[in-house]
């Protein structure tokens, strides 16, 4: 079979190029029309506005109808639009539509590798402890410290979650009243954030995976009791020292 090419073909057989590899080579000297380029730019800008608009829209829907959209909606909408935009850039600005198909194949193969990477890592990391609870995450919320409070050599060593350390330090420095004012100002700085509106105790109002109940007692003592109902999943790990220390 490796000799198949040697069979002399009657119709214009080129000895230097028996497979005709050069005949169909598509050289990438395509010149895109100016209108196409401007058009693509326009569509890209429109889609940028759209993705921002939809993100705002989702928030409006959630507050207006007082419903909680599933978390994936935000990601799915944003990623779909981003994918469309990326495809446009790839096809028209990066000329994949006109150039040698091998370039497209290279890019797609790299995306497949990307997908495998994300899929299998997620498959493992996000499914630990389903069968053996002993393999579940055992992480001290916010850390156990051991890091330094600043750049200098003689900076204090933080012996708790750094978020708590800095919070307490600031409270001591400015007093609770100014602290509350500052927090309100900084949280409202970009007032779009729905949860920030409810003030310093907002974290208590909702089930939040990723927060540690009771962590913010210093600032929000009144909120302590409300944590009880949803404390199971994080209270337990928080009570144990982090693995490896």
């Amino acid at each position: 079979m490796s000799n198949a090419h040697a069979a002399p073909a009657s119709h214009g057989f080129d000895e230097l190029d028996p497979h005709g590899a050069g005949k169909h080579t598509k050289h990438s000297h395509h010149i895109v029309s100016g209108v196409t380029l401007v058009g693509v730019l326009g569509i890209l800008l429109v889609f940028t506005a759209l993705t921002v608009g939809l993100a705002q829209g989702e928030k409006w829907v959630m507050s207006y109808f007082a419903i909680e959209l599933p978390r994936w909606v935000n990601v799915a909408v944003a990623m779909s639009i981003a994918t469309i935009k990326a495809t446009l850039v790839l096809m028209y600005f990066m000329l994949l539509r006109y150039s040698n198909p091998i370039n497209t194949i290279v890019f797609l193969v790299c995306l497949v590798a990307f997908a495998l990477f994300l899929f299998f890592t997620g498959l493992d990391i996000n499914n630990r402890g389903n069968i053996d609870p002993i393999k579940a995450n055992q992480i001290q919320a916010g850390g156990i410290g051991g890091i330094k409070a600043g750049w200098s050599k003689d900076a204090a060593v933080i012996d708790k979650a750094s978020v708590v350390y800095w919070r307490e330090r600031k409270l001591n420095e400015v007093g609770p009243e100014k602290f509350a004012k500052m927090k309100a100002a900084f949280s409202h700085g970009h007032a779009e954030h729905a949860h920030a509106d409810t003030g310093p105790t907002a974290s208590a109002a909702k089930v939040k995976s990723g927060t540690t109940p009771g962590l913010f007692d210093a600032a929000a003592p009144a909120a302590h009791d409300e944590h009880g109902g949803h404390a199971e999943d994080h209270a337990a790990p928080a009570a144990k020292p982090a693995a490896g220390h």
Binding site: N127, I131, D132
Partner: peptide, 9 residues
């Protein structure tokens, strides 16, 4: 790694 990941791998 976790049990599921280990089994699949």
């Amino acid at each position: 790694s976790g049990e599921l990941g280990a089994t699949v791998f």
